[in-house]
Design a protein around this nucleic acid. Sequence first.
DNA 1: CAGCATCCCCGCAGATACTG
DNA 2: CAGTATCTGCGGGGATGCTG
Lengths: 129, 129
Amino acid sequence: MKVSETAPVEPAWHAGPTMCSERLLLEHITSRWGVLILIALLGRPYRFGELRRAIGRVTEKMLTQTLQTLERDGLVRRDAKPVIPPHVDYSLTDLGREAAEQIRALARWTEERMPAVEKARGGYDAGRA
Amino acid sequence: MKVSETAPVEPAWHAGPTMCSERLLLEHITSRWGVLILIALLGRPYRFGELRRAIGRVTEKMLTQTLQTLERDGLVRRDAKPVIPPHVDYSLTDLGREAAEQIRALARWTEERMPAVEKARGGYDAGRA
DNA sequence: CAGCATCCCCGCAGATACTG
DNA sequence: CAGTATCTGCGGGGATGCTG
C-alpha cells in the first residue's frame, strides 16, 4: 500500500500468510516489547539484564527475540564484548532512533488523549447497557 | 509507563492479563486492520462495503470488529441512516484524525526507510549463513 | 551474564452460515 | 447492505530447564 496516497487503499499491503515487509517492519516497531525497548534505548544504551529489569515483566525469551528482530531490521545495534562473564550492550542505530522517536510520539499521544478516550469508551458502553 | 520520561521504563504499562488502557489503545491503532482503516478514512468517509472493497482481503468479521473497537475508543464515528437497505457511513472524529495522521506518518516512514531495512536484513542474514 | 531449547496453552484471525 | 453467531486452527507468548 502506498500510504502516500490516502485513498483508495491498495490491497495486499498487509495480510495473508505472506505479509509484506513494510507491514512486518511496522509490526516489529509497534509490537508489545518493541515499543518499550525502542523508548528505553532512546534514553541510553542498556545491557541485556539491565534492559530486562528496566522494562519489567518481560521474559528472557521475548526480550531476546524482540532484540534480534530489531537488530535484523537495522534498528538496534548489538555490541558483544568478548569477556567473561559476557557483556552485551544494546543501543539504537540512526534508523532505530528515527523509529523510536516516532513511536515515542505516538505513545505520548496515547497518554495525552487517554482521558478523552476513556470518556468515549464510557459513553459507548453506557449506550449499550 | 510514563513515556515522557525516557528511562527507566516503568513496569506494568503493558503486559499481563490486564493490559493497561494506554497499551490497548496503541494496540488498536497499530493493529493490522486498524492502520488501514484509519489511513483510508483520512482520505474521506466510507460506507461499510466500500471500505471493505477499498482495503481488500479483510473479512466482514474483522472489519466490523475493528470498526467497533475504534468507535468505542472515540476515533471513528459511525453514522447509520435508518433506511432500507441499510446505509452506514464511517468517518474519523477529531481524535481519530490525530491518531490517523500519526500512524500515516509512521507508515510513510516505513516506506521511505524500507530500502535501508532490507539492506540491514540482508546483511544480518548473510552473517549467519 | 546472556542467552538457547522445549513444551504447552489460549486467544485471535479466518471460514462459514445465518438475519433484520 | 450491514451486520451477527459459531466453529476451528495455529502460532505468539509465557513457563521452565539447560549452557558457554
